[in-house]
Design a protein around this nucleic acid. Structure first.
Length: 371
DNA sequence: AACCCGTGGGT
DNA sequence: TACCCAAGGGT
């Protein structure tokens, strides 16, 4: 079998009119569809990367309240940006958005650029987001290719090539461009994505509701359920973590993760990843020693939290501890802080760390109630 | 090119 | 339960 994708030469489909008519009659109401402000469009596109509409909506409102214009965002401290993004995931998006806002504010006087080269050069603007902002905010003729469009196009033309291959992706980009309804790129792009999200769904697509069903090669062949074809993903390892809730003078120790990498810039309770022949208590003590250089005394087991990331999963065993000796310093962490339970609400935590923080605050509430 | 980067919902 | 998937980008 050849590894090269099948030639893409198929008769061009004329789907623009049907798709646009369907879209105007069936499009969902979304907050970013009620504005033409390029900053708002840009924000929505960053948040929508690998994230579903229903998840984004509350974050979108919250973020615009905190940062109403690109200038507000540009002059905000990163900690506040991350706090506003807390829980949405893929935090590099927030860091890149912040950097892009600074560039737009300073280099473009707050006006979002309207050319492909200028926009694509900004942090966080890949081929999808660049084309999406240009077409939706400025109605420029650039096609988008995302998970929805890939699904719609591979089914429309019954394409069985592995869409994780770059060569296949390149063909799909060219196909998307060839199908674009010029002059109506913003609506057209949103129409294809809307179709993929609501009708041409991954599992059991609603072909009976599809405006393109008579043009769909996969429906004709009955192969829509097995498209698109994707290479299988690798298995996810599991890790055990020992984390410490370290008390000293009625305050708790929290550490800030390094700027780049997993959960970059977020705060957490210091922890270690369990190694062979190590108890979780030993892991916890070692992790704290490596993070801030202090020795602690472990008291009670506090809570256990499980979490699945994209490429691995973890179980965090958290222990109540108290400070023993040593001068705290930022070693493997970027910074550290001793904070009261109330102050835990001011810091940006990952989901798992936030769960632990919530448990601590609830316990304090319960203790107060009992007394 | 292959891997890294979060979280929630669906099946 | 254990996958898959989501309006992707960076390295």
């Amino acid at each position: 079998m050849s590894k090269k994708p099948n030639p893409p030469k198929k008769p061009p489909k004329r789907i623009g009119k049907k798709l646009l008519a369907w879209y105007h009659a069936n499009k969902r109401d979304m907050p970013w569809r009620q504005t033409k402000d390029p900053y708002c469009i840009l924000l929505s596109e960053f948040m929508l990367q690998q994230t579903q509409v229903d998840t984004v909506i509350p974050y979108y409102h919250h973020f615009l309240e905190a940062f109403p214009t690109v200038h507000h965002l540009a002059r905000a401290p990163q900690d506040k940006v991350l706090k506003t993004w807390e829980g949405l995931g893929y935090y590099a998006r927030a860091r890149n958005l912040h950097k892009a806002a600074k560039a737009i504010s300073l280099q473009y006087d707050g006006t979002v650029p309207d050319t492909y080269d200028e926009l694509q050069a900004l942090p966080g603007f890949g081929p999808y987001t660049t084309a999406a902002v240009l077409s939706i905010a400025y109605n420029k003729d650039h096609a988008v290719l995302d998970g929805n469009v890939i699904r719609v196009l591979t089914r429309l033309l019954n394409i069985h090539d592995d869409v994780t291959q770059n060569a296949v992706k390149k063909q799909l980009w060219e196909l998307a461009e060839s199908l674009l309804a010029k002059g109506q790129a913003g609506d057209y792009n949103q129409a294809v994505m809307e179709l993929g999200a609501t009708v041409c769904t991954p599992k059991s697509p609603n072909c009976q509701d599809c405006p393109l069903v008579t043009s769909c090669d996969a429906h004709q062949a009955g192969t829509q359920a097995s498209l698109p074809v994707k290479a299988k993903k690798k298995p996810r390892p599991h890790h055990m973590l020992g984390a410490g809730i370290v008390w000293h003078k009625n305050k708790v120790l929290i550490t800030q993760r390094p700027e780049n990498g997993l959960l970059g810039g977020l705060w957490e309770f210091p922890a270690g990843t369990q190694e062979a022949d190590e108890t979780l208590q030993e892991t916890c003590s070692r992790g704290i020693k490596e993070a801030v250089g202090i020795d602690i005394q472990i008291q009670d087991r506090f809570r256990t939290v499980k979490h699945a990331f994209t490429h691995f999963s973890i179980t965090i065993h958290a222990f109540q501890c108290h400070y023993k000796n040593g001068k705290a310093q930022a070693l493997s962490c970027d910074t550290f802080a001793w904070v009261s339970l109330v102050e835990l609400s001011d810091y940006a935590f990952s989901r798992t760390s936030r769960k632990l923080a919530d448990f601590l605050q609830q316990n304090a509430q319960n203790d107060l109630f009992i007394k």
